[in-house]
Structure formats: structure tokens, C-alpha cells
Amino acid sequence: MKLLLIEDDKTIADYVLGGLRQEGHVVDHVADGRDALGQAMAGSYDVMIVDRMLPGLDGLSLVRALRAAKVMTPTIFLTALGGVDDRIEGLQAGGDDYLVKPFAFGELSARIGALARRPAPQATETMLSVSDLRMDLIRRKVTRDGIEIDLLPREFALLEHLMRRKGRVQTRTMLLEAVWDISFDPQTNVVETHVSRLRAKVDRPFDHELILTVRGAGYKIEG
């Protein structure tokens, strides 16, 4: 694999470089965050190993900038900042994994291998379709058989969730978590109410139903 190590501590960098090169990897090393930004954008790497506390540009800002530039190289933070909030910050910034110093080289190697085996991210879809139903995610527009359907924001989110999972049953719990960000049962019929409203707009005016109830399980959309 071709790897990029972004680490300003010489002792740690030499240790990691030696171990990775012994395993047969090609490893580039940069000690400054700002220099690393250009290197990461110019190079084609399988995995990046990034320290958080870097001169020039800190690791979080570096990874955020790369993600904003659509550089999606799998990234593992290797850092002394090991609190729960630190790990959350790293993952929310665009990191794929987080390993705290001091660390075992074998674990770092295994995590790098796991990241490299992940499938490459797919291009973000901008148009969803099920039968004659179309959803334009850029224009936030829904049509069926060429007729525009006016949806409220929560109805749009619910329909998008179902369309992205065409043919797969979505339970009430799944929908609460995905659409309402609720991880407990609020003991209300909010899901059923919104599904009913969505059907009234998406299915009722047309000659066949797309949004189906799977008795005892949940809902799915199928054309």
C-alpha cells in the first residue's frame, strides 16, 4: 500500500515508518500540517495516518479541508488526545478511525489494513427513482408521472429514507432514528401519521401504490 504519515514527533515517526516499511508499504512522511495538505491533495494514497497536534495546520483542520476538497482517502488519527470528546471530534471532522498514543504497532497495522479493505466511497446520488416517482435531491423536488408533489420537510426526509432503501423493510424504530433522530419509542403515532400523509400525496392520486405496509414489520417502497 501507499501510505501518508503526518506526524511531527520524530521518534514516533521513525518508529511507525520503520514498521510500515518493513511490512512492504510505501510510506511518505510529512511533519507540517500545511505541507501535508498539499501532499495529500497531490498524492494518491490508500490510507493516511494523521496526528492531531501539528505545526502549520492542526490535524482536525487538515482533515476537514481535505474532505471539503472531496479528498476521501481513508484516515486514521494517531494522537495523544484520547478523551471521548476528542475521539468524537476526530470522527466528526472526517476521520475514519482513531488510535490513542501510546499504541501497539500491531494494532495500528491492523487498523490500517481494515481501512484499506473498505470499499471506496460511491459518488453521492443526486436523483432517486422508484417506478415513476422521482426525487431530485439538489432541487428538493419530487415528481410522479411528471406531476410535481409538494412535500413538507419531514415528509421529504421520510420519502428520501424509504427511496434510498428501495425494497427493504424499514421498521418503526429505524424510521424514528433516521428521520426524527429519536432513539427511544415516544409512544406516539408520529410515524404512522407521516406515512399516511405521504401516501395521500404520493400514492392516492395515482393508479398503483408504491409505499407498502409489511404487516407486523414496518414499511417499504417498491415499484
Rank of each mutant, 00 (worst) to 15 (best):
A178L: 11
Q122P: 07
T126R: 15
L128R: 10
L78G: 09
D9M: 07
D46G: 15
D145M: 00
E23I: 02
V191S: 07
A217M: 08
S109F: 04
M174D: 08
L62H: 13
L5E: 01
T143I: 05
L108Y: 05
A200M: 14
M41F: 01
Q22T: 07
V26L: 08
T143L: 09
P186E: 00
V214N: 08
L210Y: 13
P153D: 04
T73S: 08
L212M: 09
R165Y: 01
I221V: 01
F206Q: 12
E148H: 07
V195C: 11
K70T: 02
I49N: 15
M135H: 09
R199G: 07
V100E: 14
I88D: 04
T171V: 10
A69Q: 13
R144D: 00
V47N: 14
D185L: 02
D46R: 07
A31L: 06
Y98G: 13
V84F: 12
P186G: 01
M1E: 05
R199V: 05
R139A: 11
E23L: 10
Q92L: 09
D28C: 01
A36D: 10
Q187H: 06
S61M: 12
S131T: 05
Y15D: 11
G146C: 02
D150T: 05
I12E: 02
A69C: 10
A93N: 05
Q22C: 03
V30M: 09
V191I: 13
L57R: 14
A104I: 11
G43S: 06
A123W: 06
T173S: 11
E23T: 06
D145R: 07
V190A: 00
R168W: 00
E222Q: 11
I112H: 13
H29F: 09
W180K: 14
